[in-house]
Amino acid sequence: MAPIIELNEVRRNFVVRARAGRLRRTKRVVHAVDGITAAVAAGEACGYIGANGAGKSTTIKMLTGILVPSGGSVRTCGFDPVPERRALARHIGVVFGQRSQLWWDLPLGESFRVLAAIHRIPPGVAGTRIDQLVEGLDLAPFLDTPVRQLSLGERMRGEVAAALVHRPKLLVLDEPTIGLDMISKERLRQFLVAERRSEGTTLLLTTHDMSDIERLCDRVLVVDQGRLVYDGTLPGLAQRVAMQRVLVVDLLAEHPPLQIEGAEHIGSELNGVRQRLSFSPEENTAARVLAAVSSQVEVRDLTLEEPAIEDIVRTLYSRQ
């Protein structure tokens, strides 16, 4: 079976012009995507991550036919995205965290029906599918609410439903959980896992939230300065980068800096009520560090801080 996504030495350049004096302008070429080769199989869930400006959104725009590559070739769901963009639209769904495909003044439910009509889905089939999406994403309470009156979390769940009305082969999510609270994020993740299991949908996800990648993706592609620097699993990425994780513990009372084997105390706040302990995921686990802390003091609350994607990419790229 042919891959859902095929990138072969894909490049995309932009010319940036700047003023140099009163009468002269200079220009330089920016290589937003610089020779990426990768393939994503049908049914796969793939995270596409990197620092801001790494080339993620540019790649997605080429995959969906919005931008023409400067070089190389792109095929999405078997189509050449730009000349066959209309045919491709029947097979993909796209959610951009900062852009809407819903009608601002229409009730949410009406937007779904309009999209079903655009995709020429028979009314009976469309009704069943919309009901399924409404139930899975808990959209029933605000189907009659105009989109402009929805909260960000409600609208983002509506955007995901809108992208899935026509049962696309490929769902592209660009920062789908940006600005969502913890409950909304978890509800959306659970739905996407169930949708992929039942429909066999291929998922391409870009995000700065590593929890999204952990919960949803089997594979990770890391891009930096337009080049692919890693292709593999998330545990493999963590092992390759071997960056420190940080366990933040809130204690019931003030306490001197904790001394824990296999972890390093890196800071205290509130006279030692809150303490931060860093550890290497290759040598220790959060569970063992927490158990060691609990054997010394009583813990009221805790959080686990993952390295920022920018730091992961920077470390990974510096080792190439």
Rank of each mutant, 00 (worst) to 15 (best):
S198T: 12
I213N: 05
K185V: 02
T206H: 04
S184N: 15
I183A: 14
Q190G: 11
L192S: 02
S184W: 13
E186K: 14
M210V: 11
I183L: 14
S184P: 11
I183G: 11
G200T: 02
A194E: 12
R187S: 06
Q190H: 13
T202S: 00
M210H: 10
I183N: 13
R187G: 07
E199A: 15
R215M: 14
R196W: 10
L188N: 00
R215C: 12
A194R: 15
S198I: 11
I183C: 10
T202W: 00
L205A: 04
E199Q: 15
T206C: 09
S198W: 08
L203A: 01
E214W: 08
F191M: 03
E186P: 11
E195F: 13
H208T: 03
L205G: 02
R215G: 10
R196S: 06
E214D: 13
T207Q: 05
I213L: 09
L205T: 03
T202M: 00
V193W: 07
R196I: 05
L204F: 11
R215Q: 14
A194Q: 13
M210T: 09
L205M: 02
R187C: 03
T202P: 00
K185F: 06
D181W: 10
R215K: 15
L204R: 06
R197C: 01
E199D: 15
E214V: 07
A194N: 11
R197F: 04
D181L: 07
S211A: 13
L203V: 01
K185N: 08
D181Y: 08
T201W: 03
R215V: 15
D209S: 10
R215Y: 13
T201L: 04
L204P: 04
E214Q: 11
R197G: 01
S198C: 12
S184I: 09
T207G: 06
K185T: 07
H208F: 02
G200R: 03
E214K: 09
R196V: 02
S184L: 12
D209E: 11
H208A: 02
M182C: 11
E199L: 15
R196N: 06
T201V: 11
L188A: 00
R189C: 06
I213C: 07
G200D: 02
R187Y: 06
D181K: 07
M182P: 12
T206A: 07
V193T: 13
R187K: 12
S184M: 14
D212K: 09
H208K: 03
H208M: 04
R189L: 05
L203T: 01
M182N: 12
